[in-house]
């Protein structure tokens, strides 16, 4: 189906998420300067930014695909690859570093045979690092599936990740 003005918010795949994304762009009046807001929303809906999705956004905001790609790759927050079912983010900010976050990371890497920034083969766990979570008062801190855990040790963080892997959340 050719994309015309009338049906431009219906994606050929019929995926409803495109409609929601389109509503966001409409709210911003398709202004090119809303690009980052739109990418945030897209990542929230789709969990990562596929090429096809970036093209769709570029087309809607009337931006060259190169600049959409340029912005998406510039910011650390945007991920162009899918993440694992579960994520563990280790803070490598100064406060956490001083309190031994390197040790947490190495233990996790060994336990799951996984490098920071990578996902396990079974797609169950992504191990990531962060700059600072603003939780320096309870350093060292990690985020497991979205919830921040403070005062971690190598044992406690592995225990926490195991819980996530085996109990769903």
């Amino acid at each position: 189906m050719p994309i015309t003005k009338e049906n431009s918010n219906i994606h050929p795949s019929g995926d409803k998420r495109f409609q929601m994304l389109s509503a966001t762009m409409k709210r911003h009046q398709y202004a090119p300067d809303a690009l980052i807001e739109v990418l945030h929303q897209a990542q929230e809906l789709f969990s990562y930014l596929e090429d096809d999705l970036l093209l769709y956004i570029a087309h809607s905001l009337k931006l060259p695909p190169s600049s959409v790609y340029g912005v998406a790759t510039f910011y650390n927050f945007f991920s162009l690859k899918p993440k694992g079912v579960h994520t563990c983010v280790v803070c490598m900010g100064t406060a956490c570093y001083v309190k031994g976050s390197t040790n947490l990371l190495t233990s996790l890497e060994q336990q799951y045979q996984l490098q920071a920034g990578k996902t396990t083969f079974d797609n169950q766990l992504s191990l990531l690092t962060a700059r600072c979570l603003g939780a320096c008062g309870i350093a060292p801190a990690v985020v497991v599936d979205g919830s921040i855990e403070g005062h971690q040790t190598a044992e406690s963080v592995i225990h926490r990740v195991e819980e996530s892997l085996h109990h769903g959340s």
Binding site: A95, C132, G134, A135, C136
Partner: peptide
């Protein structure tokens, strides 16, 4: 608030 180790603004 990008400085790692700073969380005043957040708070």
């Amino acid at each position: 608030e990008g400085d790692p180790g700073a969380f005043m603004d957040r708070s």
